[in-house]
Amino acid sequence: MSGGSGVSGGSANAAPLRALIADDERLLREQLKSRLASVWPELEVVAEARDGAEAVDRADALRPDVVFLDIRMPGLSGIEAAREILALPRWQGEIVFVTAYDEYAIAAFEQGALDYLLKPVEPQRLAQTAQRLKSRLGASRAPERMPPAEQEAALDAVLERLMKLQRGLETGSGARAQPLRWIQATAGNTTKMIDVNDVLFFRSDEKYTRVQTKEAEAFIRTPIRELVPQLDPQQFWQIHRSAIVNLGAVSAITRDDSGRQRVHISGHPEVLEVSRSFAHLFRGA
């Protein structure tokens, strides 16, 4: 792309604007970094992240002016990472989502007035986004951003839309497969067939997902992100990147001293935390 299509750098005395790129694909990070160097050479890419959790940590440590977040990343998704970043004390940066979703899903971002880039990122579209970011950030570093409450509402709308798309519930997306009826899980040396209606909750660690019933626990290798679309969304809600709860087993929703929501399970002592990404599910709690 010719130099004339780039974005000007502002005052010569102003410190350069700084960016973080988060994507689990190294080649895509490098491609975006290269194209940013072409259309916005004054922008300094100070760090890269391979997943959502790493993006949150680096955003907290470095406080970049712009964070480019891939939507689909292991662990925290881009949407979930954005919510965590927006919650950082005195956060003053801008967030841009990078997504491979089609135009139908992109409407969720447009309606929410959020910045996004569609993969593969085209230089002309990237230049337009860069120009908008420069305009909002400005040399004074006092961005004219949406108020925090509006940003959070916009993210909630996008998250809900994308979750519906994932589950095949949007109009025109085709018929959704029948929800999972039985879970084949391991308990010690025994393989058990568990009726999903008997499951109180699912909870994951790095290797396994625990299937908890009133009587016992068992384990499966299916991660939460793959389990969610197989379950009936009217019965099971994901409340954390590592937890899904059976709504019929919920006895109460409480808040701790920090304002975090907690889900209490009927007939079971374990209490499940609701992450900020899913707090909108229990707005009245």
Rank of each mutant, 00 (worst) to 15 (best):
Q166H: 13
A22N: 03
F97W: 02
V158M: 07
S140I: 03
V121T: 06
P74T: 13
L17I: 05
D51M: 06
F109H: 08
I183W: 01
E42K: 01
P143K: 01
E206C: 06
Q212H: 12
T191G: 00
A149N: 05
V121D: 09
L86M: 08
Q234E: 15
R283S: 13
I224Y: 12
S77P: 07
V45T: 15
R35Y: 13
L272C: 02
A153S: 12
E150H: 02
L200C: 11
G168Y: 11
S258H: 14
L62V: 08
R50Q: 11
F236T: 02
H264T: 03
Q111G: 15
L162H: 08
G9V: 12
A154N: 11
E54D: 08
I106Y: 08
V211L: 14
A22S: 04
L247F: 05
L227R: 00
L118I: 14
P143C: 11
D24I: 13
G52Q: 07
L118H: 14
D57K: 13
F202T: 05
A285T: 00
A249G: 07
Q131W: 12
V67Q: 05
Y101F: 15
Q178E: 15
A142V: 14
D257I: 13
N13I: 10
R125L: 02
Q235T: 15
G267W: 09
Q111Y: 03
F68D: 03
M193E: 12
G93D: 05
G52F: 00
R145K: 03
R283V: 04
